[in-house]
């Protein structure tokens, strides 16, 4: 019998614990440091390019004259159309799944399918958009084709977020509505949706902020990288901020890298504003039951 096995060895164990805690702290510090370095790296290169001219000029082959007007306008078009397509479809699907769907194999299939779609790489959506929207439907390399592709890409996220918001609405509200004689749709339209709306909007804005940063699917459907005009209809060719950033980053000249950094700052500010809007919406209007 070896009594050494029962020694508490407290000092050693405490030291192991301290080392582990230090390792965890280093991990956390790593993420924070990376974020800080990334922001410094981008600002150092890009801040001096930021000016009204940079925002209001079209791209140019000469770095000093280049701007991101067409990219900003393209991104705005893209955001509006993507939201217009994905919001009604996503909320509709979520209402069906939460309020109407029977508990059977088909509903389970729908639900599994949605969570699997959320894991499909974005470039595969690009291939789908290229084959279906650009060629089969004949939208061409247009804003509409891009928006339809991005809408399908973020649809699973919009659906899942909307479902969460609908789930959070207490059943007593529905029962009270049925109790005074409302139909199913009246109950949803006048009782459930108003309560769930802040949650739904928060989820939609967050998924739109993902769409606004997407590059690969839009390259697939053929968004042009050099566009010196603003789209005026959904059928026009377009470029967006991430594609402009990609284009400039891929060039060997350092001046274009700095332009990319300038565009990145604009893109990050847009994303920050969208995220802030989502958080404000969540905190201000969300009711807890």
């Amino acid at each position: 019998m070896n009594d050494a096995r029962f020694l508490p060895k407290q000092a050693k164990r405490k030291r192991a614990g301290a080392i582990f805690q230090a390792v965890c702290l280093v991990s956390i510090g790593f993420s924070i440091a990376v974020l800080a370095i990334l922001i410094v790296d981008v600002s150092r290169d890009g801040l001096r390019w930021l000016s009204w001219d940079f925002l209001s000029r079209y791209p140019s082959r000469i770095p000093a004259r280049a701007g991101i007007k067409s990219a900003i306008l393209g991104s705005l078009w893209m955001m509006a159309l993507t939201a217009g397509i994905s919001f009604p479809l996503g909320v509709g699907a979520a209402i069906y799944l939460e309020e109407y769907a029977p508990r059977n194999w088909f509903t389970r299939l729908l639900q599994t399918n949605i969570s699997n779609l959320a894991g499909v790489p974005s470039i595969v959506y690009g291939i789908l958009g290229l084959a279906i929207f650009v060629r089969f439907f004949g939208f061409g390399r247009s804003v509409l084709a891009g928006a339809a592709t991005l809408a399908l890409l973020i649809l699973p996220v919009v659906i899942i977020a909307s479902q969460e918001a609908l789930k959070a609405v207490p059943n007593s509200l529905r029962e009270a509505s049925y109790g005074v004689g409302a139909t199913k749709w009246q109950t949803i339209r006048y009782q459930v949706l108003p309560v769930a709306l802040p949650g739904i909007l928060t989820g939609t804005i967050l998924s739109l902020s993902r769409a606004i940063g997407e590059t690969a699917p839009l390259i697939m459907i053929g968004a042009l990288t050099f566009i010196a005009f603003a789209p005026t209809s959904p059928m026009d060719p377009f470029t967006v901020l991430p594609i402009q950033i990609f284009n400039w980053t891929a060039k060997p000249q350092a001046d274009f890298h700095d332009l990319a950094a300038g565009a990145i700052i604009v893109l990050l500010v847009v994303l920050l504003v969208m995220n802030a809007a989502a958080i404000v919406l969540r905190n201000r209007y969300q009711k807890r039951f």
Partner: peptide, 24 residues
């Protein structure tokens, strides 16, 4: 403090990470 930092990192577009890779 840490959760928002991670959320921001998760929300940065991949093309920005590409820029970060090439320039840093």
């Amino acid at each position: 403090i840490i959760k928002p930092v991670l959320e921001v990192l998760a929300g940065i577009p991949t093309v920005v990470y590409g820029y970060f890779a090439l320039t840093f």
